[in-house]
Design a protein around this nucleic acid. Sequence first.
DNA 1: GTTGACTCTGTACCACGGTACAGAGTCTAG
DNA 2: CTAGACTCTGTACCGTGGTACAGAGTCAAC
Lengths: 136, 136
Amino acid sequence: MSNAMTISRAAEQACVGVETIRFYERRGLIKQPARPRRGGYRVYDAELIERIHFIRQAQQLGFSLREIDELLALRSHPQTHCGDVRSQAEMKRDEVDHKIEQLVQIRTALDKLICACPGDGALSTCPIVDALARYE
Amino acid sequence: MSNAMTISRAAEQACVGVETIRFYERRGLIKQPARPRRGGYRVYDAELIERIHFIRQAQQLGFSLREIDELLALRSHPQTHCGDVRSQAEMKRDEVDHKIEQLVQIRTALDKLICACPGDGALSTCPIVDALARYE
DNA sequence: GTTGACTCTGTACCACGGTACAGAGTCTAG
DNA sequence: CTAGACTCTGTACCGTGGTACAGAGTCAAC
């Protein structure tokens, strides 16, 4: 048993915390391996590690755990074909685009304020404070 | 009392919900007006409305409530000068820039996957599923 | 003076993605 | 055989920005 993949080894392999694995199990994102007879430690296998990698990669791409759930369901469903996954990715891309647009607007607004602010002088004349207070 | 600014009127003026005002009060972002003697309804004044506008505007610019707390503290502190506020804005701008960069990277990665995916055919050959599973 | 709308206080709950612990069990090295 | 490290189960908690009540009080109009 000394070389068996226990949860802490699995966590190490997958670069996540032990509690994170348990959390994914509770969420149903990964299934808990059966315990050996008479209750010992669960043994994790490579497929499960791979699944955790999938989850982390998808998170990096901006998918929420709920969405990853759907991706995983698609993936394990035999009828799924490539286009289903691709349209998920396309939707996510559009979402990311939208977020970028919003942030660019915020950035522009902040920059305008920063440029308008002399950086010295009394607070009462600060255009930033002024702009925040003004209701438009 | 019929024309007094009660909390619901204040909420309307500030374009937020009544519960949101109460929430800001609990958070200490705005101070609760004193109740008239013998316990009646609190009366909100224009300054408070303006403060709520300040909060909402700052939220629009990507400041968290905690950061808005700091901005408000700066604003009501007599020694503060313009530069203090400006450097907060600059930090926020840099943060927003960073978020944009990250999202652009995500967008690029998604797009690459989408372009590589034929959109038809079996799931087993899907480059998106493949990429998500691969650990790099 | 009663009805109906509003307010007040306190507390609980929502989604999100975990993190932390207690108390029991198990495994392994020495 | 025992100590120390790990695991298991269950449950509670974190921060974020609110939302949703219940039960009591208050106010204005009719």
